[in-house]
Simulated scan of single mutants.
Amino acid sequence: MRVCIYGAGAIGGYLGAELAQVDGVEVSLIARGAHLAAIKENGLKLLIGEEERVAKVTATDNPAELGPQDYVIVALKTHQAWDVADQMVPLLGPDTAVVTCQNGVPWWYFFGVNSAYQNLRLNSVDPDDRQWDLIGPQRAIGCVVYPATEIAAPGIVKHTYGNKFALGEPDGSMSERSTRLSQALQEAGFKAPVLPNIRDEIWLKLWGNLCFNPISALTRATLDVVATDPGTRALSRAMMEEAQRIGARLGVHFRVDVERRINGAAKVGAHRTSMLQDLEKGRQLEVDALLTAVQEMGRLVDLQTPHIDSVLALIQQLGRTQGLYPVFPEDSGSPESLVVD
């Protein structure tokens, strides 16, 4: 089994280091800069508690060097994955599966659904149908990521908690390619169930991310504060209720209620959300897959989203003033090629 991890950062590095220990799995990594140089020189180091593991794997910044793979696991943020879609093409053989590990609404969301929205494209996450056309939705396997990891230093990934990567086919089938990948991930020590409706799992994580992330970035507050302060908790609840109505109209089942979801976030403690961390580090904000896509889907099913709209406008404006979100020209519906990484 040939597996390429496209984006060997914190999550991708964690996946790659563990999968490399499995017999019969040939792992390669796409990385860049100092991180890539360190991996090439010393291997990819993974810190789990007091244990240090070193994986000797092929690492490059040029996908064309690797050739077609059985699986390409995309561990980039949504806007980054869109940017490099053309660079993934050399990795794609006739049967290559592409596993999307991004937060939020994936670009293939309406592929394989048995509804009036089948094969509808979402401009908010895939402008100009770039990924749909270059990669192809038939290759997609959904993945919802739960572990918390970070790059401790170039070439060194630190695992904090969690080991679940939920998988699912867009059409809900228990395909051979999904079960084969699940088995490899389980051999590597991960929890990797193949779910009959991956969209339910996508929405469960999205449900919190769409409110907690932007509110924390706007207020600089940690997750426990956002989820317990009366004002930000009420705003989070209102945004989640709007999103739940959209999801329900699209056939999504929410297995927990709003209060339980917010309480679960509060229990995580003084966690700085990924959007807050990106803001502090001057990295492009991941707004569209978490909020703009939900707004777009709301318009699709004729539901208003006043609270989501307001928070989206605020976080977009914050991102633009900081140079961390694309600026949309007045005469165009698509972003300029401004990317700050």
Rank of each mutant, 00 (worst) to 15 (best):
R2N: 12
Y6Q: 01
Y6P: 01
I11V: 14
G13C: 09
Y14I: 01
L19C: 14
V27T: 11
S28F: 11
H35P: 11
A38W: 15
I39P: 06
L46G: 12
L46H: 11
L47R: 13
E51V: 02
V54I: 15
K56I: 05
T60C: 06
D61A: 01
Y71V: 00
I73Q: 00
V74E: 03
W82C: 00
V84A: 03
A85E: 05
G93L: 04
T96E: 06
A97C: 14
T100W: 15
V105I: 15
P106F: 05
F110A: 04
A116D: 08
A116I: 04
Q118Y: 02
N119W: 01
N119P: 00
D126R: 05
P137N: 12
Y146G: 06
P147Y: 12
A148P: 02
T149P: 11
E150R: 14
I151F: 06
I151V: 14
A153K: 13
Y161P: 00
G162W: 08
G168E: 07
M174W: 07
M174D: 12
E176L: 03
E176P: 00
R177S: 13
L181P: 02
E187I: 01
L195I: 02
N197K: 10
I202A: 04
L204T: 13
K205D: 03
P214L: 02
S216L: 03
L218Q: 06
L218P: 05
T222N: 10
D224V: 02
A227N: 04
T228F: 02
G231D: 06
R233W: 01
R233G: 00
M239F: 06
M239A: 03
E241W: 00
G247H: 05
V252S: 05
F254Y: 15
D257W: 12
A265M: 08
A266E: 14
G269K: 13
A270M: 03
T273R: 12
S274G: 10
L276K: 07
L276W: 10
E280L: 14
K281S: 11
G282P: 10
A289R: 15
L290R: 14
L291C: 14
V294P: 13
E296S: 03
M297I: 04
M297Q: 15
G298Y: 11
G298P: 09
V301E: 13
D302I: 02
D302M: 04
H307S: 07
S310I: 03
L312M: 08
R320D: 05
T321W: 09
Q322E: 13
G323N: 09
L324N: 13
F328A: 01
G333N: 13
